[in-house]
Simulated assay, not measured.
Amino acid sequence: MKQQYKYNPETLSYEKVNVSFGRRLFRIVLVSAPSILLGLLLALVFTRRIDSPKEKELKVMVDKQERELKRLHKEMLLANEVLDVVEERDENLYRSVLYADEFPVEMRRMGTGGSDKYSYLKGMPSDSLLLLTSTSMDRLQRRLNAQSLSFRELLKLVKNKETMITCIPSIQPVRNTDLKKPISGYGWRIDPIYKTRQMHTGMDFTAPKGTEVYATGDGVVELVENKAWGYGKSIVINHGFGYKTRYAHLSAIGVSEGQKVKRGFLIGLIGSTGRSTGPHLHYEVVKNGKKVNPIAYYHSDLTPSQYEELLKSSNKSSKALD
């Protein structure tokens, strides 16, 4: 820095100006500050806009992982769509053919963990996409596990199908040639004694006293009753696979408890015992403890036209016979 002088009017001469070190340093900083600030700003801009080779490599990897996650998520959506078709066939085809119960809905929706299961994903690159893919994967796994259980159950039924086919009720308990109208079907009917509307839990086949009654499927005679009221003389056959049948108001019984019977085996004769207004057979089908409409269990000995005629006849009658 150049030597500075100042004029002294008292001595009429120029005198040297002595500047302290601190003052000199302050002047240097003051002069250099704009350059330093500009340099810092330029460094900040360049470091933010220009990635290092390592940062570029990491960015490429993250982008690649994100594309792969999107591809996996798309494939899982497709797999879930295919599984929708499999589940639909399971319920409406396979289980229908094998007379299997509906697979429990709660089994198909089995849980896989708490709400904090995916907390470790927060803060990761593409964490929202990771969360979406992880939940989709869990859902797919849950549905596949449930479908595996369902198929395992159906496989057991397939292995027992030959036995099951002979056991499940599938014929009329009375020959068509022996039947006389009216036939009272399953559903709400007028009670013949109390004249009130009540649920009729079976099907009434009208035929002359002494008409032969046949077992509708293979099974074991579980119960033989002889009551003055109610079902009167009746038989209950356990067919296994959740099925039972009852034959009521008989005039005679030809089997005993514990006896094994085959489909078409003569088990008794039509009568009007118990709570009955005339000779007929009251026939019930019980599936898994619930009385169901017997009309669905005559497919082995009726033609389509005969079945339609039976259906019309049972629906026309508004009165039960017991």
Results as ranks from 00 to 15, higher is better:
residue 239 H to A: 09
residue 258 G to L: 03
residue 292 V to Q: 11
residue 281 L to E: 04
residue 250 L to R: 02
residue 205 F to L: 00
residue 286 V to L: 08
residue 207 A to E: 08
residue 262 K to W: 09
residue 273 T to Y: 06
residue 294 P to A: 12
residue 251 S to Q: 10
residue 202 G to T: 04
residue 214 Y to G: 04
residue 267 I to E: 04
residue 246 R to N: 15
residue 294 P to M: 08
residue 216 T to I: 13
residue 292 V to L: 04
residue 208 P to Y: 08
residue 227 K to R: 14
residue 194 Y to H: 10
residue 296 A to T: 02
residue 208 P to E: 05
residue 231 Y to Q: 13
residue 200 H to F: 12
residue 272 S to R: 02
residue 237 I to S: 02
residue 214 Y to S: 03
residue 296 A to P: 04
residue 267 I to D: 00
residue 229 W to R: 14
residue 247 Y to F: 06
residue 201 T to P: 14
residue 210 G to C: 01
residue 220 V to K: 05
residue 247 Y to I: 06
residue 256 S to P: 05
residue 238 N to F: 09
residue 271 G to W: 03
residue 251 S to F: 06
residue 215 A to F: 00
residue 218 D to P: 01
residue 294 P to G: 09
residue 235 I to E: 07
residue 200 H to M: 03
residue 233 K to D: 11
residue 242 G to M: 01
residue 279 P to V: 05
residue 288 N to S: 10
residue 279 P to R: 03
residue 255 V to W: 03
residue 242 G to I: 06
residue 207 A to Y: 04
residue 259 Q to H: 11
residue 229 W to I: 15
residue 212 E to W: 07
residue 196 T to A: 10
residue 213 V to S: 01
residue 251 S to N: 08
residue 294 P to W: 03
residue 277 T to F: 00
residue 287 K to L: 12
residue 255 V to F: 08
residue 301 D to L: 01
residue 235 I to D: 03
residue 201 T to F: 12
residue 259 Q to I: 05
residue 254 G to P: 04
residue 256 S to D: 14
residue 282 H to L: 11
residue 271 G to E: 02
residue 204 D to R: 03
residue 293 N to T: 03
residue 247 Y to R: 13
residue 281 L to A: 13
residue 263 R to H: 03
residue 271 G to V: 07
residue 282 H to N: 07
residue 199 M to V: 15
residue 264 G to K: 04
residue 250 L to A: 02
residue 287 K to H: 15
residue 266 L to D: 13
residue 277 T to V: 11
residue 239 H to W: 01
residue 198 Q to T: 15
residue 218 D to K: 02
residue 280 H to M: 05
residue 295 I to G: 10
residue 212 E to A: 07
residue 293 N to Y: 05
residue 237 I to Q: 00
residue 263 R to G: 06
residue 205 F to M: 03
residue 212 E to I: 12
residue 211 T to K: 09
residue 246 R to V: 13
residue 209 K to R: 09
residue 259 Q to D: 01
residue 288 N to Y: 13
residue 270 I to Q: 10
residue 210 G to F: 02
residue 286 V to S: 14
residue 222 E to P: 02
residue 297 Y to T: 09
residue 201 T to E: 15
residue 238 N to D: 11
residue 228 A to F: 11
residue 264 G to E: 11
residue 274 G to T: 01
residue 252 A to R: 13
residue 231 Y to C: 15
residue 234 S to F: 01
